[in-house]
């Protein structure tokens, strides 16, 4: 298998797993609930336009130059959205790299690890961006309806926030594991604020799934 074919093949596998995991989460693992989940999501997206209008509707006519207080509100909103995405991205990193516990299988195979991990990181970025787009669409809709198509550019900002959150999440997770190891990271969880809970809930399900080799002794 060529490198490109291998990447495509592994990406298909990742997308299939991510889709099935997401669907199971949305349907609570019950087969007959797929339609109910789709209807629920659609209704949720429609209903979200109301709070979106209440929160952001007055900004639809915003024109440059902006005053200081508006800039502060926008910056704070972007930072809050970024922090939430970071939290979700870190949860994805732990789930995809550690909770699945398939590193033994992958590492015992002759596959190129760099390819596998690249695809996984891309899949994490994609899932974070998809979720961000899903949640932000009602807000952007309100802005577009109230202020014109120029607000479609907000999707670009959302994508950029999602991608940077995914990149930081991967880096933070790797650094935490290398610096303090999974077991100590789990201990820190008790003192962490909610936004960082996913990072700090990292626990090595099995010493064998820890790529850092820190917990192969008696600590884990």
């Amino acid at each position: 298998m060529s490198s490109a074919a291998a990447l495509t093949w592994f990406a298909r596998h990742e997308i299939r797993l991510a889709w099935r995991e997401w669907l199971a989460m949305m349907t609570a693992g019950r087969k007959g609930r797929k339609r109910a989940a789709i209807i629920g999501l659609t209704v949720f997206a429609a209903v979200m336009h109301l709070p979106a209008y209440a929160v952001i509707g007055r900004f639809a006519d915003l024109q440059a130059p902006l005053d200081k207080s508006t800039l502060i509100v926008i910056t704070a909103t972007v930072f809050l959205a970024w922090a939430l995405m970071l939290s979700q991205a870190i949860e994805s990193v732990t789930r995809v790299f550690y909770a699945r516990a398939d590193l033994d299988l992958i590492m015992s195979s002759p596959v190129t690890l760099a390819n596998v991990f690249s695809v996984r990181i891309a899949a994490i970025a994609l899932s974070v961006v998809a979720m961000a787009l899903l949640l932000s669409t009602p807000f952007v809709d309100v802005l577009v309806i109230g202020g014109g198509i120029r607000w479609f550019a907000a999707f670009g900002v959302v994508i950029a926030i999602g991608l940077s959150a995914a990149a930081v999440a991967v880096a933070v997770t790797i650094v935490l594991f290398h610096l303090i190891g999974p077991s100590r990271t789990g201990w820190l969880r008790k003192f962490s604020p909610r936004s960082s809970a996913p990072v700090l809930s990292l626990r090595c399900r099995s010493p064998r799934s820890c790529p850092t080799e820190r917990c192969r002794g008696s600590r884990c």
Binding site: M1, A6, W9, F10, H13, R16, L17, R20, E21, A24, R100, A101, D102, D104, L105, I106, S108, S109, P110, V111, S206, R208
Partner: peptide, 27 residues
């Protein structure tokens, strides 16, 4: 081939899909 004492298989795949994936890892 390596088989651990704590078998890792993907919950969301069928046995056939899992074997297809593993075979793919070996090209």
């Amino acid at each position: 081939a390596w088989v651990s004492d704590e078998p890792m298989i993907y919950d969301k795949l069928t046995p056939l899909e899992y074997l297809e994936f593993v075979a793919g890892l070996w090209g």
